[in-house]
Design a protein around this nucleic acid. Structure first.
Lengths: 140, 140
DNA sequence: CTGGACCCTGTAGTGAGCTAGAGGGTTTAG
DNA sequence: CTAAACCCTCTAGCTCACTACAGGGTCCAG
């Protein structure tokens, strides 16, 4: 039976819903630490559950594990990393906006092709694979 | 000197702007075929340039190389794959629309956090890493 | 004392579309 | 003839966050 102050990796996995392998992966990235017993087992304090939840929440905000590592580094310097988190968040928002814009423009392109191709079918020329696609310009 | 009817891989690369390694990769996926000379070299007919341009155009429409392979398979059955291409295109447009919608919703979430966090700073509780992120709900 | 549940390390694989390099053979211009 | 430029195969690496073994050791209830 697990004593409350000494969790095994499976306990942490159960309490967080994160797979054992993923927890070991977090440790390999320096996002989670553990003490080792004489048997080689990882042992965690109860706060580890909180730490893993923190990682999951940060991921839910679109942060990469590398971002999380950066946040934790600031935290381990003794600072509250909230300012840093806010700027990361602003970056993510900006990236999303850029991506959305690009994808929207691209979708408009595709719709143009779709609509143009719905009306008239170009007549196939010898060697054509699909006469529709052949009309796409190469932007080289 | 390259005879017009027998291109080496480097010739095709130069005429299409596609790297030699990429051409070999296309061949490994069955998108491009070549004859082998006694020296082991790949030799291509001039149409290969057109075929590679076709691949590039399809990619420009957001088609994956696997999509291109499917299109070519239809073509090799002797059919004009335009109907198939149209339905693939419609799929891509739909996928883009879904992604844009998801990203837009997610961006709105992030902006909510950003704006909420700009106003008031939650007071840190013992054990908190970043009191802002701690307020994010875990959707488990 | 045994069997099943747990733990360990280390490696490989996933997806996409390539690029880079090692270690060789071939061709070609001068 | 020679050196550069080309060609070959095979392997590894890139990104990201894991998962899935293989091959072992450990722990605990009955």
């Amino acid at each position: 039976m697990a004593v409350a102050t000494r969790l095994k990796i499976g306990d942490v996995a159960k309490q967080t819903g994160v797979a054992v392998g993923a927890l070991r992966y977090y440790e390999s990235l320096g996002l989670l630490s553990s003490e080792r017993g004489d048997n080689g087992y990882r042992y965690y304090p109860p706060e580890a559950v909180h730490q893993v939840q923190f990682i999951k929440k940060a991921q839910a905000l679109g942060f990469s594990l590398e971002d999380v590592g950066d946040v934790l580094t600031v935290h381990q310097r003794g600072d509250l990393p909230c300012g840093f988190v806010r700027s990361l968040l602003q970056d993510k928002i900006q990236q999303l906006e850029d991506q959305i814009q690009q994808m929207t423009a691209f979708k408009a392109d595709l719709e143009q092709y779709r609509d143009r191709w719905a009306e008239s079918q170009p007549r196939p020329q010898s060697g054509d694979i699909c006469p529709l696609i052949e009309t796409v310009p190469l932007t080289v």
